[in-house]
Simulated assay, not measured.
Amino acid sequence: METSRQSLMNKVVESVKKQLPSGLSCVGEGERILIGRTDAGERKDRALLEIPLAPLFSRAEKSPQDAALFTTAFVERVLVIVRGQLREHRLEGAEEQIYPVLRHLSFIKRAPERWAYQPHTAETAILYAIDDREGYQLIEKNMLEETGWTIEKLHQQALDNLQRLPVPKKKQQVGPHLITFIAPTDGYAASRVLHPTLLQEMEQNRTGDALGVAIPHPDVLIIGDLHGKTGADLLTRLAYDFSSKSSLPISPLPFFWEKGELIPFLAVSHEKKHMEAEDG
């Protein structure tokens, strides 16, 4: 397996190098790649970006036949991040381009002093991005300091912009459970969970025992009107499956929406045959 991972890393590094702007380098280290200035060599403290390879490894190992497709998609996402990071962005003048993004807490823990963020759940945190549709840049604390913005002002500006985005819904009935998929292609599907009224409205309209929510990766938000244990089992499977197939997973765990809060849970099914019959 190590040889396979090394091979994947080499392919990513080689492909990224070919497409990087001049003056930038890409090296592999352990289970991540480092993007940096050419004159910075391999020094971690001078790296422009550190991107973990674990999500790519996981996807490729589960579906080896699709490893080439996964690698191509991973490289494309890396290049989008690089393009956004290279732009000289300021908060002033870019107010309409600021959006909230969700990340797993492990992302924050790698450099907690770097990012402008707020806690979200026990699994996730809210970061913020400036998006000019050609690339995006995550907002760092020093950008707030330069502009004199508070994190509260940044958060409100991001929510105001989020509310202007459409919320397309695709509903699917699975037994007694009604599953709603929100998957626009703007990169902020999961961020819709922060919409001030979305979950409140769905909670008011539910007919089941609980409202379940999954934010497996940035490009999908899953909301379930769930009935009993089989509903919790179903959402658990969906959250895990969608998260495991993404190059940028957020949370493999689903949540219950309770009194305005997202509470993570893990359902372990001992009735697989019953669930498959019901879901079919």
Rank of each mutant, 00 (worst) to 15 (best):
I98H: 09
M1R: 12
L266T: 12
R5W: 08
S15A: 15
T71A: 08
A277M: 09
S247Y: 04
M1S: 14
L194R: 03
Q200D: 11
A125W: 06
H120A: 11
G280N: 14
K17S: 15
L248H: 10
L198E: 07
E201M: 01
R114S: 14
P55F: 00
K18W: 07
D66G: 00
L69F: 10
W257I: 04
I215W: 06
T72E: 15
Q85C: 04
H104I: 01
A158K: 02
E96Q: 14
S25C: 05
G36V: 00
A111C: 05
G231S: 08
S58D: 07
P55E: 01
L165N: 00
E31R: 11
I98Y: 08
F265P: 09
G93D: 13
V268G: 04
S243L: 06
D209Q: 08
L34S: 01
K273R: 12
Q157R: 15
Q137L: 13
D186Q: 02
A214F: 04
A111S: 15
P64M: 00
T180C: 06
R114G: 06
A214Y: 03
T185C: 00
Q97V: 00
F107N: 08
M1F: 07
M275F: 11
V101H: 06
A68Q: 12
K169A: 10
S269V: 03
P119M: 10
S4M: 10
A214S: 14
V75P: 04
L221V: 09
T3S: 12
Q97N: 14
M1L: 09
Y117L: 11
G212P: 01
H270F: 10
G135R: 03
A239M: 10
A189L: 02
L91F: 08
L221W: 07
R133N: 14
R5Q: 12
F74E: 02
L86D: 09
L79N: 03
K141N: 12
H104R: 09
A129N: 07
P112T: 04
S246P: 05
E14H: 13
R164N: 10
K229Q: 15
A125V: 13
L53Q: 02
K109H: 15
K272I: 13
G231M: 10
V193L: 06
V27I: 15
E96P: 00
H120W: 15
G212H: 05
Y136A: 12
L144A: 07
I81Q: 15
G228T: 06
H120V: 03
W257N: 03
I263R: 13
L91W: 05
A94T: 14
P216S: 02
L105G: 15
Y117M: 13
L262Y: 06
L79T: 03
A190F: 05
I250S: 04
L138P: 01
T3Q: 13
D233Y: 13
K17G: 07
R90G: 12
L198R: 04
R237T: 08
L144K: 03
A68T: 04
G175Y: 01
E76Y: 04
L253I: 00
I139K: 09
A73H: 14
H89P: 01
L262D: 03
D279H: 11
E76A: 15
I126N: 13
T180L: 04
Q173L: 11
F265W: 11
G93Q: 12
I222Y: 03
P184V: 02
H89C: 12
H270P: 06
